[in-house]
Write a protein that binds this DNA or RNA. Structure first.
Lengths: 171, 171
DNA sequence: CAGGTTGCGTCAGTGACTGACATCCTATAG
DNA sequence: CTATAGGATGTCAGTCACTGACGCAACCTG
């Protein structure tokens, strides 16, 4: 926030935390990683939420429910997320890491769906699409939080249903 | 292919090309970028393909058509893609760049759809979902090319229609 | 209290990437 | 044909992210 990410050396980051640079790298894999620690927590939250979804629920609704389960965590984090987003927005290297984290979540959700007995191909497709929907909803909510993340999720899933329905009609 | 990406210095890469390291960095932004030059070409191909889709076509079908338009380019590139994929697969830093390129295409497709008159929110959602479908299809085709990329695309879009239809039924 | 583990500091080293400047090559005006 | 401006390349020095090796101190654990 003070000098921009690229202009901040790992030395400075570590010093501000009261440790040496070497110690910083014992806690975080690289300079960027310190800004993406929350992904682990989010993953755990999604695991819990998905576990509490009845087994008979179809994959996409199950993901929708899981995302809703993670809403409190994400909304509670907004004060931090907002600062974070402002830095990421102007730093290509950080945007890259962010999409990498999303991609990692897609892989994770794919495995989680497969564990629920979903066919591997469908699992991958649903994880990819569901994560995309969630990303769009979150982005909208970051831009304007007034409607709430739950509502944005619902809206995005509804829109998915609409665009893919009219898609079907056109075939 | 010979030593692994991480074990290959930029010095070596440049030397193999008959230039100095400094010259390498005048042509590519960083060490990884040399492996992702094709994205620009793909973007141009998608632009052309999207331009030839009638204006009244709905966004998702338009994207489907655009991806089909890029199939020859992608399939023609398979010999190279295959080697590339093998290196990327075992190099996290390259996977990160790859998903970043996909994310860049999502942004690009969002703009392209908006230019067609699609509502901004719907454009983003369709670009995100459509790109996801295309990524899944491409991944399946990379794994087993026997069916052809066109067929994989059709199958993935059909599956999207199915999972989002049953999703609608459940609401 | 001996020994093992864990976290940190120090140091030296590698390699990606950049800015400044010199040089050379080429295209085009004259 | 030649002078010259522009662009591409080489050279050099420097910064900074990141890593391995070693030593030290705190803290369990039996």
């Amino acid at each position: 926030m003070e000098h921009g990410f690229d202009q901040t050396t790992t030395d400075r980051i570590a010093a501000r935390a009261g440790v040496t640079e070497r110690t910083y790298f014992r806690h975080f894999a690289d300079k960027r990683e310190v800004l993406f620690d929350g992904e682990k927590q989010l993953r755990e939250e999604l695991t819990k939420a998905l576990a509490s979804v009845p087994a008979h629920v179809e994959p996409l609704p199950a993901l929708r429910a899981a995302f809703h389960g993670a809403v409190p965590l994400i909304e509670g984090n907004r004060p931090v997320s907002e600062l974070r987003a402002r830095v990421i927005e102007v730093t290509p290297a950080l945007q890259e890491r962010e999409v990498a984290k999303v991609a990692a979540l897609v892989v994770f959700l794919t495995e989680a769906l497969k564990a629920r007995g979903v066919d591997a191909r469908i699992a991958q497709l649903c994880a990819q699409v569901g994560m995309g929907i969630c990303a769009v909803a979150t982005q909208r909510w970051m831009h304007d939080p007034s409607a709430g993340l739950d509502a944005e999720l619902e809206a995005a899933f509804r829109e998915l249903h609409e665009v893919s329905a009219e898609f079907g009609a056109k075939r």
